[in-house]
Every structure is written in C-alpha cells, then in structure tokens.
C-alpha cells in the first residue's frame, strides 16, 4: 500500500514536471510566432522599397546605414531561422504531449490500483 502511494506521488510529480515543461515550450512557441510575424512585416516593407530609400540598422543607441541587399538577406535568414525553430519547437511540443499523455494513463492506473486495495486494507 505504502509502496503504491509512493509510486503515485512520484508519478504525479513527474506529470507535473511535464506540464511545466509543456507550458514553457508553449510560451516559446508563442514568442516565435510573434517574432515571425514581425519579421514578415519587415520583409514586406523591404520588398516595397525603392533604391533611394536608405536602410539603417539600430546598433545599440545609434543608427548605422546598411546596404539594402544586406538588410534584405538578413531578414530572410532570420525568417528561415525562425521557421526552423518553430518546426523544432513543434516537435518538442508533440513529444512532451505524448509523454504527458502516457504519464497520465500510468497515473490513473496507479490510482485505480490504490482504490482496489483500499477496501481490503
């Protein structure tokens, strides 16, 4: 009986840990989404630029002039990076979700076992 209780506690702790991981990953995913849309807006803006538009980049407190082509490719690499990050985080999300699901069934099984023993004890 005590062994089962200990097992239950351990399992629920593990489950909680997984839930925490999950919310952290979800947060990361949301942040990436925000970055993606911001960068997409910048890219859209860059696509509309004419040659006379000078592009500056904010470096610390000062604006540094930058080549239009360079700025464009910068944003493009950033977009690619963010997209691959999103894919990675999605994978993590799936993994954690399935692990949490598994843990949950284990948890319920242990609970059921305890309840079955309870009337006897």
């Amino acid at each position: 009986m005590d062994a089962l209780q200990a097992k239950l506690q351990q399992k629920s702790q593990e489950y909680q840990k997984l839930q925490e991981d999950l919310s952290a990953v979800v947060e990361a995913r949301q942040k990436l989404d925000a970055q993606l849309s911001e960068n997409e807006l910048v890219k859209k803006e860059f696509d509309q630029l004419t040659l006379e538009n000078t592009v500056y980049k904010l470096v610390g407190p000062v604006l540094v002039q930058q080549d239009q082509a360079e700025a464009k490719s910068n944003v493009k690499t950033r977009l690619d990076f963010i997209r691959s990050e999103i894919k990675r985080v999605e994978g993590q999300l799936k993994d954690i979700n399935s692990r949490a699901e598994k843990k949950k069934t284990e948890l319920l099984e242990t609970q059921g076992a305890i309840q079955q023993q309870a009337p006897v004890a």
Partner: peptide, 13 residues
C-alpha cells in the same frame, strides 16, 4: 523622415 519598420531596422522615406 526615418521610419522604424521593426526588428531594429529604420528606413529613410
């Protein structure tokens, strides 16, 4: 004028 277009980029327009 110089416009902030986001993610640290500014454009002279």
């Amino acid at each position: 004028v110089v416009v902030d277009v986001g993610t640290g980029y500014f454009v002279k327009k």
